[in-house]
Design a protein around this nucleic acid. Structure first.
Lengths: 358, 358
DNA sequence: GCTAGGATTGAGACCGGACTCACAAGGGGT
DNA sequence: ACCCCTTGTGAGTCCGGTCTCAATCCTAGC
């Protein structure tokens, strides 16, 4: 009531200029802190601005500087703590350099991703961080790259796209952890992923996700190294929702030759798999060994605590934002950071399989 | 190489107009789908736009429509799945109505929140959703509200601010669950929260968070109802990081008269509390009963599965975005949705205390 | 055949800043 | 006293759209 609130028009430099009795140009200089302004004028302008509680219109500013100080982040699903953490790394870093983040979810749909990228480009973000839904359908990303707009990929590579990519080398850690399982005596090691495919997995099949490809490649290599053959029917894709994961898990464990170890491709899958195992009255690791990607805090609370593959997710978010901002500001692409690597954390969910134990 | 990529200047309406041999105004009308345009011209313009792969500059558009189709979301910490889920609800809803989301983290610091709000206002977002770090320091939110910019609060109320607020009525559920614990025979019920305070908790103390106030109020009421007195030294605030939570938990359990039940104020605290309990070699619920806020999936996986207070977090995100967009578009504030309520989900982490069992 | 009235169309103002340019004023050097 | 250079200043353009306004077209009605 006191001040007549909610006047429609916002205060602009012109208003401040008038109040300070100087030209718009001078007021703009004083406020924007550029050009030459006498102390006297600066004082008057700043006082007037304060008085009118002037705030610059960033939109207008962006328009003729061509910089929005905003970066676009496109991820599959923030609800997934993996991305939540990465996003945190991104926003923290962005904030430090004075950037804001527009976040868009794609639900891992390429069409949504294409739309998201377009919207962000229309909003003239200074750069994009994308966790590509597909490693194959990447024309839209190609466009971004060609148009010269800074782009950094997170988590997954994109086929034939020469763009800075912050990702863990999955083949390696997958190889290592598969070898670990093999050495424990496992031979039927199942791998469950949400990745959508038309047909069941077959060796050599082209997959939409570089992450999954690499992981499977690592598994195969470990089997081959041990002179064993990797059976493709232990690879179960299309584990989209809790129900299908449950069905898949039961299928794996109730088969004539049941899997003795299950590897869950992400935290969400892990949740449903463990639940399904408990539901079947089986125990980890006595009846079935379990290994999952991503080291969430809760994995230490289950009994037994779960053996996991820890990825430096937050740090990758930081690195992605850092790399992007470096590109935006035209600086050199830093010492290339030697890539990120995952780590196998052995807790209690992997043991010798029953068969080997007898 | 084929097309001379990365030409600096972007295509504008003027370019399209020239290519289509019409005036800028006509081209703009055809592209923006407003005003009167003959079929012939529309065709030529659209074709030219396609040919040049024209994309409108949303910044420019926002500037003179005064709408940015962007909403600002200010939360304490996206890394926390609670906010992750709420954010998901917000972005899903926003997307449906054609809005984008700029996300800012405050780390629960009021100063960061003030800054965040200012930045978002400068960027001329159409509205704000804020989970206030403080229920008391709310001048900045007051300003937003007074300036007429749509604002919706999430999770927590703000003292004396008459703004649409999407939150669970905490007093009620806290009362209910405390009664549940009392009926199970518990008398020393501890409550642990991250809330920062200068001094240890005392009854009647003014707290910075409406959520915590309400929860404590509910607890008190339950005690009073049973003719018992609520001991304030069982309330432990300032549980900021894993270490302090561990210390607090140990303090609670190793005291001469140890707590027999612990209530964790959020998922992050719960993690560290449970860990500390396990570390002490105590078992839930035999040695200590446990109850936590937020029903995360992993709470079903521990042994025993944890008894939780489930909040409809995603739905609240949806509601907040819905309410905000309604305000932005000047529509009536919908049937007020009767508020959200939490639900006590009894799983296995609460039992009779040893003392009462003998 | 002539005209009123709606459909089209182009010129140009405008949104709110940043920035260019021309010009005035003041100081130092010679 | 004169020239050069630095600092200070205002007028005006530009960014890329939207939108107003007046002019021009076209067609039905008489």
């Amino acid at each position: 009531m006191s001040s007549n609130s909610s006047r429609r028009r916002e205060i602009t430099v012109a208003d401040v200029a008038k109040a300070a009795q100087v030209s718009k140009a001078q007021a703009a200089r004083a406020l924007g802190n550029y050009g030459a302004v006498s102390e006297e004028v600066r004082g008057r302008v700043l006082a007037a601005a304060e008085e009118l509680s002037y705030r610059p219109n960033e939109l207008a500013r962006s328009m003729n500087t061509g910089k929005s100080n905003t970066i676009g982040v496109v991820v599959g699903d923030i609800e997934n703590p993996h991305f939540g953490l990465a996003t945190r790394g991104i926003t923290d870093t962005a904030k430090k350099s004075g950037y804001n983040v527009i976040l868009i979810n794609t639900d891992e749909e390429v069409s949504a991703e294409i739309e998201a990228v377009r919207v962000l480009l229309d909003k003239r973000v200074d750069g994009l961080i994308v966790a590509p839904a597909s490693s194959i359908e990447t024309e839209h990303l190609q466009h971004v790259h060609e148009s010269g707009r800074p782009l950094v990929l997170l988590d997954r590579k994109a086929e034939g796209l020469d763009v800075e990519t912050i990702a863990v080398s999955m083949a390696e850690i997958s190889f290592e952890s598969t070898r670990y399982l093999l050495q424990a005596g496992h031979r039927r090691i199942a791998f469950i992923s949400t990745l959508k495919t038309e047909t069941p997995y077959r060796t050599g099949m082209v997959l939409d996700s570089s992450q999954i490809s690499e992981r499977l490649e690592g598994m195969q290599r470990a089997f081959t190294e041990s002179g064993l053959s990797f059976s493709e029917d232990q690879v179960r894709l299309n584990a989209g929702d809790a129900d299908s994961i449950r069905t898949i898990t039961r299928g794996l464990l109730l088969a004539p030759e049941p899997a003795t170890a299950i590897v869950a491709s992400d935290g969400l899958i892990a949740l449903s798999v463990v639940e399904a195992i408990q539901e079947l009255g089986l125990s980890i690791p006595d009846d079935i060994s379990f290994l999952m990607y991503d080291d969430f805090s809760w994995t230490r609370l289950t009994s037994p605590p779960l053996t996991v593959i820890a990825q430096p997710v937050y740090e990758m978010g930081v690195a992605a934002a850092g790399a992007l901002i470096r590109q935006i500001e035209g600086r050199k692409p830093a010492a290339n950071g030697a890539g990120f690597s995952a780590r196998l954390i052995r807790r209690g969910s992997v043991a010798m399989p029953r068969t080997a134990r007898v």
